[in-house]
């Protein structure tokens, strides 16, 4: 009633009063939205399925040294044996590619049976500008596209930074297979759910090295705790110029390649 009388007597004041109320209301909304955004961002719920919080657990990273890889295929074979990966030559959790850059600039990429049976040099030596092996596996991305697209929360980043699959919860929709920019996922032909490298999570938990790293004869593959600033892996990263695959995609890849050539896709 008071306001009514005010508005009738002094129209101008009333107008100002409403606009102040509106102003305060809008300002509060903006501040609230900014606060909410900051809070969501700090908890990373928009980016990660699981942000590492538990400092007591390791945060795993991987290094592959291309200069040391001799393409023997032990890793790919051991991976299939250890994880019961189907033997057909299109199901791989890890595989090796041979890149051969010819003198004319063309690039020849081969990966017969994922490199399990070894490589036979197909390009004559005199035509080769340079040649090297690139072992590939899951990059265990910190901001993995595969996790972001899963509609049911069946794939996730473990507290140790290992990207895992919940086989009981996966509906086999193949979104993640499409989303992975590194081609590291496939649908298991028997289980009909997504399958991928687990960094041998079952071995890590028992204190053993992943099977591929266990059998690598030249030590081209390494894994370690990225949190441990004095550890072997961080030491290697400090002393070498390493690069991840497809850095422009901002996947937060934790698989670092030493001596990676620009031809590698």
């Amino acid at each position: 009633m008071y306001r009514m009388s005010q508005s009738t007597s002094t129209m101008g004041n009333e107008k100002i009063r409403i606009s102040r109320r509106k102003f305060l209301k809008n300002a509060t909304m903006v501040a609230g939205a900014a606060f909410g955004y900051a809070w969501l961002k700090s908890s990373q719920v928009l980016l990660f399925a699981a942000e590492p919080k538990d400092e007591s657990l390791p945060w795993y990273g991987i290094v592959i040294d291309i200069q040391k890889c001799i393409g023997c295929g032990s890793c790919a074979k051991a991976c299939k044996n250890e994880n019961d990966v189907p033997k057909e030559p299109f199901f791989f959790r890890t595989w090796i590619e041979q890149y051969t850059v010819k003198n004319d600039g063309s690039v020849n990429i081969v990966s017969p049976n994922g490199g399990i049976d070894g490589f036979v040099q197909t390009v004559p030596t005199e035509e080769i500008f340079k040649s090297f092996f690139v072992p590939k596996m899951c990059n265990h991305c910190a901001k993995s596209p595969c996790i972001q697209v899963c509609p049911v929360g069946a794939t996730y980043d473990s507290p140790e930074g290992v990207v895992l699959i919940d086989e009981k919860y996966c509906i086999g929709c193949r979104y993640c297979v499409q989303a992975c920019p590194y081609g590291c996922r496939f649908i298991h032909p028997v289980k009909k759910v997504a399958n991928k490298c687990t960094l041998c999570y079952h071995r890590l938990k028992k204190g053993l090295a992943p099977a591929c790293m266990e059998v690598c004869p030249t030590g081209a593959r390494m894994y370690g705790n990225l949190r441990d600033k004095n550890g072997e892996l961080v030491k290697f990263l400090k002393e070498h110029t390493t690069q991840v695959l497809r850095p422009h995609l901002n996947t937060g890849s934790k698989l670092y390649y030493n001596a990676l050539s620009s031809e590698v896709r």
């Binding site: 699981a50 996730y156 980043d157 507290p159 919940d166 009981k168």
Partner: peptide
Amino acid sequence: GHYRAASL
């Protein structure tokens, strides 16, 4: 996180 913890 947004997953089944028992899956670990």
